[in-house]
């Protein structure tokens, strides 16, 4: 899922400090799972914003709505009939949702309520960590299911660097060395000979280096 966290409240207040009526839009997908932008977080933020305004002797009307997704037309259409009533929108979706909402409704300013962090997993309740950087050319089949692009600080493709000590990364003693994890896992799988196979130079054009990416499926296009 896409993992995000709420922006500092002062930053959010700054976006709408001159408004009297705003729409706060949550998203029922990834950001609900990571407790950043679901229905509950929309309610808490609405309360906090109202109180922050009241404390200054001002009033802020906040309408709350949580859409199934903000990255699909059909769900964003649900606010078409109401969006013009508001001076601004704060979206609690990931950056994708914020942008799609802003692209769709050109006359209302849309502000992000979250900082989108990474694509990752829920390690345990309240703990999320990165697992994928969307490089567009998955090599997990060669690396025992452990991604050196997202989990090695240097994104090395052929073994650990000299900074790997006791299985930990040199940038942070708490951080596992991705290549140590790969080697250990290959050993467990009886596939250590795969470690000897060199991964060729990666074509980074499928990652961000090639600019914004797009996938077109002709069989699905309307």
């Amino acid at each position: 899922m896409i993992v995000a966290e709420r922006k500092p409240i002062d930053e959010i207040i700054g976006f709408v400090k001159n408004c009297k009526k705003i729409l706060l839009v949550g998203c029922n997908e990834c950001v609900t799972v990571c407790y950043a932008g679901g229905k509950k977080e929309v309610g808490v933020l609405a309360s906090a914003l109202k109180m922050a305004f009241m404390k200054e002797g001002k009033e802020l009307e906040v309408e709350e709505v949580t859409l199934e997704r903000q990255c699909d037309h059909e769900y964003l259409e649900e606010i078409r009939n109401i969006i013009d009533q508001y001076e601004a929108v704060i979206s609690l979706a990931c950056g994708v949702g914020v942008q799609f909402l802003a692209e769709k409704y050109l006359t209302t300013p849309v502000f992000p309520g979250l900082n989108t962090s990474f694509m990752g997993v829920t390690e345990e309740s309240g703990v999320w960590s990165e697992r994928c950087q969307g490089c567009g050319q998955c090599i997990l089949g060669q690396t025992a299911g452990i991604c050196p692009i997202s989990r090695c600080a240097k994104r090395l493709l052929n073994g650990p660097c000299g900074g790997s000590t006791d299985g930990k990364c040199e940038i942070n003693k708490e951080l596992d060395c991705a290549w140590q994890l790969i080697i250990d896992r290959l050993k467990e799988l009886g596939r250590l000979e795969d470690y000897e196979k060199l991964i060729p130079i990666k074509d980074w054009s499928t990652e961000r280096a090639g600019g914004p990416r797009k996938i077109v499926r002709e069989d699905l296009k309307s």
């Binding site: 500092p8 808490v44 906090a48 922050a52 404390k55």
Partner: peptide, 11 residues
């Protein structure tokens, strides 16, 4: 968590 948020908004 709520205590921190209340601190942040000055309540």
């Amino acid at each position: 968590y709520a205590k921190k948020l209340l601190d942040e908004i000055g309540v």
